[in-house]
Design a protein around this nucleic acid. Structure first.
Lengths: 102, 102
DNA sequence: TATATTTGTAAGCAATTACTTACGCAATTA
DNA sequence: TAATTGCGTAAGTAATTGCTTACAAATATA
C-alpha cells in the first residue's frame, strides 16, 4: 500500500484535519466533532496521517492527542517550490510585457 | 467526481509527468516513452491533469503538446505555505535551544 | 465495583482508481 | 490512395478508498 504525504493530503477531510490541529493538538473526539461523519471514519483518516508521518499521537490517559509533524509538510513544500522559478519567471515576463504596454 | 490539484498530484506517475514537461512541452508519445506502462494509461493520466487545470494541451497537426499551467501549482504552494510559519517557528526555537547548549 | 468515556479495529459495501486490450479516427507520409 | 503515426475512448478488471455499523478494550468517574 502506497502511503506518502501526497496521497495523504489528497483527501479534503484530511486537509481539514491538518488545519484543525495545526494551531492546537486535539484528541480524536474533538476532531470528529467538526465533521459530519462517524468517529471511526475520522479515526481511519488519522491513521493514514500518522502512517505517513504527518501526524503524531501522544497518549494522555484515555485521550490521544494529535499534532502535526511540520517537517513532513515541508516535504510537500520542497516538491512544489522546485517549480517556483518556472512560474515566477513567467510572471516576471508578463509584468515586463505589461509595463511595456503602458 | 472530485478533480482537484491535490488529488492530481497524489499519483507518483502524474508527478513524474509534471516533472517531465516542466522544462519542455512534450507530445503524448514522448511522455509515454518514459514510462513502463501503456500509452492509453498515460493518456488517462494526462486527462486527469488537464481536467484539474494543471496541464494544457496545444494541438499541432496530429501531435498534442502538453505543458504545465504553473498557476495551478501555485495553489498547492499557497496551501502548504500557510503552515510555514509553524514549522519555521519550531525550527527557530530549536536553533535557540541548541545555541544555548553550546 | 458498576458505569461512562475515548478509542481502535473488523467486516461489509459502493464508488473510485489505475491499469489493460481492443478499437476507431484524423493527420501525415509513401 | 494506401499505409503509418499519434491519439482518445470504451470496456473490463483487480485493488484501493472512504465510508458505515458493531464490537471490544482500556481508562476515568460515580
Amino acid at each position: 500500500m502506497r502511503r506518502d504525504v501526497f496521497q495523504a493530503i489528497a483527501d479534503p477531510t484530511r486537509r481539514e484535519i491538518i488545519n484543525l490541529i495545526a494551531h492546537k493538538s486535539l484528541n480524536l473526539n474533538a476532531i470528529a466533532e467538526n465533521f459530519d461523519m462517524s468517529r471511526p471514519a475520522i479515526s481511519q483518516h488519522i491513521k493514514v496521517l500518522t502512517e505517513c508521518g504527518l501526524v503524531e499521537i501522544t497518549q494522555q490517559g484515555r485521550d490521544r492527542y494529535c499534532s502535526i509533524q511540520f517537517q513532513k509538510l515541508a516535504e510537500v513544500s520542497k516538491w512544489v517550490e522546485q517549480y517556483r522559478t518556472f512560474w515566477t519567471t513567467k510572471l516576471d515576463a508578463l509584468e515586463i510585457h505589461l509595463s511595456k504596454e503602458t
